[in-house]
Simulated scan of single mutants.
Amino acid sequence: MASGIRLEKLRKSFGATEVIKGIDMEIEPGEFVVLVGPSGCGKSTLLNLIAGLETATGGAIRIGGKLVNDVPPRDRDIAMVFQSYALYPTKTVRDNITFGMQTRRIPKDNQQAALEEFSQLLQIDHLLDRKPGQLSGGQRQRVAMGRALVRKPEVFLFDEPLSNLDAKLRISMRTEIKKLHQRLGKTIVYVTHDQIEAMTLATRIAVMDNGHIRQFAPPADIYENPVDLFVAGFMGSPPMNMLPGVLCRNGAALAVQPKGTGLRFPLPRPLADRVTLQDGDQVVLGLRPESIFAAETELPGENRFVFEEAVEVVEPTGPDTMIVFDIGGTEMIARVRPEDARPEGTRFRFEVDMTKAKLFTPDTGQAM
């Protein structure tokens, strides 16, 4: 049975510097929650507070309904996997995995059963007599995970566990971790700076900034409906295009005119109906790169807008090609099919799916 985690007005200060600033958060039993955000936003500190490696300055931490602020890490029914693996270099894989059970005086039969179960699950049963120095990075990470798994805790905490691996290995280990969660059903809190990891692993993502949680929602909601400019700009690779402009009303119709241009991006009716600003008010139009593509017809369809701009940079990525261009001094990126790409300096006819457009207020940054 997995345990949930509840954080209530949680704070953490180092001297005069407040790093965690009154976070309220409820993680359901069995959830896979990923903490993301820029360096220094507080995500690793928040994980360490849950683990008991740091002491909260204020607020409450509850695991499985139990207040654990003053409970030592070993008694919180959690297991942690670190970025550095933290394996004993002189011990074999077998001893690294069972060391915690040995210190807790778990019967040897139970130790052996747990070792066999999880070494087979992680496909490291043929490595049990090797030492960490004889293992690859991916194998060491599996050993670190095995050491955590044999404890059979209610909560797993992962602190950037894949950041030391090469790109190909990260992808395969990401899949293994997801399979592990699906099989065990335990609560996982996972810190990463990799947005792809966050999007593919999480049941919910917490986007952190400066000690606060900006948005806590399922991956699709975070990506499709960011609550503010920070989340919109942080999540996505490449990030959402942010185009400053002014509102233009024509009866019930509403458009955004980017500064310094004669272009008018028409807003779809559901979005226009939510706008309470006046004609001429400043806004920021948000467009994901994949909602800007090569125009296929002379006349755009409903909720489509077609315009031409010069190609400044072409960036092939394999399945897609990124085209960098300029609108009124703002750099924009479109994601197009490789066969639609054009050389730098040529005019390109773009089409925008305006149903994917987002609108933000420039002063508060909040989504409309």
Rank of each mutant, 00 (worst) to 15 (best):
A51L: 06
G133V: 03
A113W: 05
D75A: 10
L35P: 08
R74H: 13
S13K: 11
K179G: 12
T361P: 01
E296K: 15
H181F: 09
P270N: 04
N210I: 08
T103I: 15
K356I: 00
G245F: 08
G138F: 01
F216C: 14
T192S: 08
V313C: 07
P362H: 03
P132W: 00
A310W: 00
I213Y: 00
R342Y: 00
L169W: 02
A202R: 03
L247Y: 09
R337P: 00
K179L: 15
K21V: 04
R249A: 12
G133R: 06
R142C: 12
E28Q: 12
S44Q: 03
G329A: 07
S119G: 00
Q278K: 15
A202V: 13
A60F: 08
R94P: 07
P219N: 10
L10H: 04
N241S: 10
I78S: 13
P300M: 06
V155R: 07
K43V: 02
I292K: 01
M25Y: 09
G328A: 08
L10K: 01
V256R: 01
L165C: 01
T200I: 12
H193T: 05
D95N: 14
I5A: 12
P270E: 04
L299Y: 00
M208K: 05
K21D: 04
P89L: 10
R142W: 11
M25K: 03
G30E: 07
A367P: 03
R147H: 10
R74F: 00
N164H: 14
L247R: 02
R183A: 13
G328C: 03
D194K: 01
P38M: 02
T90Y: 14
R94F: 08
P132F: 01
R142D: 10
P89Q: 08
T346M: 14
I124S: 11
G133N: 04
Q141T: 03
L180Q: 06
R6C: 05
R249E: 02
P316Q: 00
L46H: 06
G42A: 04
R214P: 00
M101Y: 03
K12E: 06
A79G: 06
F348P: 10
A253P: 01
S172F: 09
P266A: 14
T261E: 11
E290W: 12
K168W: 04
A334H: 04
K12T: 00
F118I: 06
F360D: 03
T45A: 12
E28T: 05
I63S: 11
G138V: 06
E160P: 12
S163H: 10
M145T: 15
F230S: 13
D77K: 03
L127S: 09
T321I: 13
L121S: 05
P38D: 08
I106Q: 06
S172T: 13
D209T: 03
Q195S: 04
F360R: 00
F230C: 14
V283W: 04
T192C: 09
A334L: 09
H212N: 10
T98W: 05
C41K: 01
H181T: 02
P72M: 10
T45G: 12
